[in-house]
Design a protein around this nucleic acid. Structure first.
Lengths: 273, 273
DNA sequence: CCAGCCGAAGTCATCAGATGACTCCATGCT
DNA sequence: AGCATGGAGTCATCTGATGACTTCGGCTGG
């Protein structure tokens, strides 16, 4: 039967041991890269894609799911599957989730990535900034300086930096900086003994950034951002032993039988090597 | 119908309209974040995970596939599913694939991301560089200067920058820079009228980078990297109308393809620290 | 004529069962 | 000791069926 299988593709079968799911994922990626599927466009229904790619529905769904995790596709229940807008921010959304599970030693490296990125964003923002951005920054900073609630201060601090990065006009830059900033925000540094000093210095750093942007001085903005983040990093390294890890849900306790999670069924000695 | 769903689990159901696959993915992520599953450790078999997470095997596999796309898990046929080493480079591997489908307008923005990153990497490399790195850079540059084959020059240029970034000692920084560099390499600028001038300037830029690193001068290294990349960017914008878009396979015939992961069975060379 | 209800079609989401392919390890033989 | 072989464990894939959701058109009532 094979229904309307006029495709002479029975010859190509599965090229060179390529797995079905990878085959499907590569096919979909190729269709997008080739422009056959434009951003925002709806994909054919699952049965048709299965026929076109030569895989079962299960394999196709796994392929779609993996591309969706990377921000390339979006499935909406009952409506269809669509190519995303392919904006850099969407691509990085999935990566943001993975940052939350990075071990700490890998995490500290991220500061050396975030710092130059925010400095670049500050410089670009200073070069392009308009009045409204400056006004917005001043307003956020004013509320930040007045607030006494720690959670609120955290949120406002993120908003300040996020606003500045968006003002750079570079979406990829802003999105990437947001991702890297997210993990650091889980930490709390306000329990430190020099809390007042830290807060004062942080506010001064923000003021310096605002002034540099208002003066349209990219070099000063970059320097101010670098200094501000370096100082923040020092404090974090000193006073942030553990994040308040409560963002992720607990997993079901497993109703009965089966060995407990503690004892892993892994004969492998562990860290190996 | 729900078939034999008399289980009293109707209460826990799906926490707040959460879909089965998302439930499973979040559960797995939580298990990793919580340390219940350590990097490199094998996961329980699919049937047991299904029971623990309360989803069918199909849904679980979709969840695993999505986390695998983000570099958090790795499935090996016949062996099992394992938590990855959780190195930043692995997390970014998936993102690299998405860069290939970014539309051009979003692509040009990436230069403003890549430039400060490579500058930072050059500065760190200069601060930490040892003799062997300098020797390696000189050797690559020597071959690069001598080569006349365009493809080879492309490869050597990538190797030069990649070596420099790795010398920074920051894995995340190097991996991210590699990802951003990959897409630009599809372009060919050697058809330009000033090809000879471009080549000479590029070689000089590399020499300046080597000298700065050899002199252990981070500021000079960062400046050299910024200058080199800025110049490259100008030429690319001027002479690179279209990439030779043949990197991705066709969907219909597709007799074979390059192995996507390369060959990385799960090295996890060491805890590193 | 317009607003709102409603039902049918299309689509994704999930479940269940069965089979094949591959890896790993231990056994037994040479 | 070295190597072939077998079994157990695990993932990969296919098939079929059912539920849930969205969307859009027509119908009804005002």
């Amino acid at each position: 039967m094979e229904s309307s299988d006029d495709f002479g593709w029975s010859r190509s079968e599965r090229g060179g041991g390529m797995a079905a799911t990878d085959e499907a994922a590569n096919g979909l990626r190729a269709m997008i890269a080739k422009g056959e599927l434009a951003p925002g466009q709806q994909l054919p229904a699952e049965p048709e894609l299965c026929a076109r790619l030569g895989v079962s529905r299960g394999s196709l769904r796994e392929a779609v799911r993996s591309l969706a995790a990377l921000g390339m596709l979006e499935s909406r229940h009952g409506a269809g599957t669509f190519v995303s807008a392919l904006r850099p921010g969407q691509m990085l959304a999935g990566f943001a989730a993975t940052v939350d599970v990075l071990p700490l030693d890998g995490l500290l490296e991220l500061f050396d990535v975030r710092r130059p990125l925010e400095a670049q964003a500050a410089a670009l923002a200073a070069a392009r900034a308009d009045e409204r951005v400056v006004a917005r920054l001043r307003e956020v900073q004013k509320r930040l300086a007045r607030s006494e609630d720690e959670a609120e201060r955290h949120a406002l601090d993120r908003e300040f930096h996020s606003t500045l990065c968006e003002a750079s006009g570079n979406e990829a830059l802003a999105a990437l900086a947001d991702v890297l900033r997210a993990r650091g925000s889980h930490y709390s540094i306000y329990g430190a003994p020099e809390a007042d000093t830290i807060r004062l210095a942080s506010d001064l750093g923000h003021e310096a950034l605002i002034n540099a942007v208002a003066a349209r001085d990219p070099a000063a903005a970059a320097a101010a951002a670098t200094a501000h983040l370096s100082q923040t990093e020092v404090w974090l390294r000193r006073y942030a032993p553990l994040p308040d890890d409560g963002a992720l849900p607990d997993v079901a306790p497993l109703p009965d039988d089966a060995p407990p999670p503690g004892g892993d069924p892994l004969p492998d000695g562990g860290p190996a090597r």
